[in-house]
Design a binder for these strands. Structure first.
Lengths: 105, 105
DNA sequence: ATCGTAGTTCGACGAGTTTCGTAGTACGGT
DNA sequence: ACCGTACTACGAAACTCGTCGAACTACGAT
């Protein structure tokens, strides 16, 4: 087979904007999703994390997180594997992700 | 004279919600305002910071920041003095404010 | 080839936000 | 008492966002 490319567009590290990151994580559904992603560990299929919304809404939220530069999505067969872009976010906004994810309430 | 009360409702430290803080700071106008507040130092009149919006819009944004628990507003004569609630935010979400405010771009 | 699973795309709808202008309140000075 | 300054309150218009269902694509298994 050929090299499997990523296909989905992600912002470069330098292109990540703080407003977009904050906007993305301000939504309860997305914040919950990213927290679960962080708790479970990296490399989880999109649908493996239960959300109180339909599939299409989840797709919408995942795209928002991806376009903001918070998560990276790659195809793996019929699934999408989501990982938090911790290295990029930590490099660009040190302490931000830790502060948000460790906020319990 | 009598004790001058605060009058404007602010959330208690324990009542501050991370979603509200992120939502508040996700807006470019509000983020700029808080950054200016941080740069100039505490205790600045509302109107002293220039914004590309009208007065009534600024009032709206200030209320959003106040209700989210990001700034404290107190009356001083005819002016409103705005201060960042750094102590409360640092206690509740350590590192968050620093990370956001020090993000240059 | 057919079926099921995983996820996307495309409108559409309702709710909330940002913005403004105008009118109003409150305080301080002259 | 009057005026100016500082800000708030109240709609209204334009826009964005979260949500859904239905239709679609892509992959893997039988």
């Amino acid at each position: 087979m050929d090299t499997m490319s990523d296909e989905l567009p992600h912002p470069e590290r330098a292109e990540i904007r703080i407003e977009a990151v904050l906007q993305a994580l301000a939504d309860p559904v997305r914040l919950h999703y990213v927290r679960e992603l962080d708790r479970i560990g990296t490399g989880v299929a999109c649908g493996a994390i239960e959300l109180p919304v339909t599939k299409s809404t989840r797709t919408h939220h995942l795209r928002t997180l991806r376009e903001a530069g918070v998560v990276r999505l790659r195809k793996e067969g019929t699934a999408r594997i989501a990982t938090i872009r911790r290295d990029d976010l930590d490099a660009r906004y040190p302490g931000l992700l830790t502060a948000i994810l460790s906020a319990e309430n």
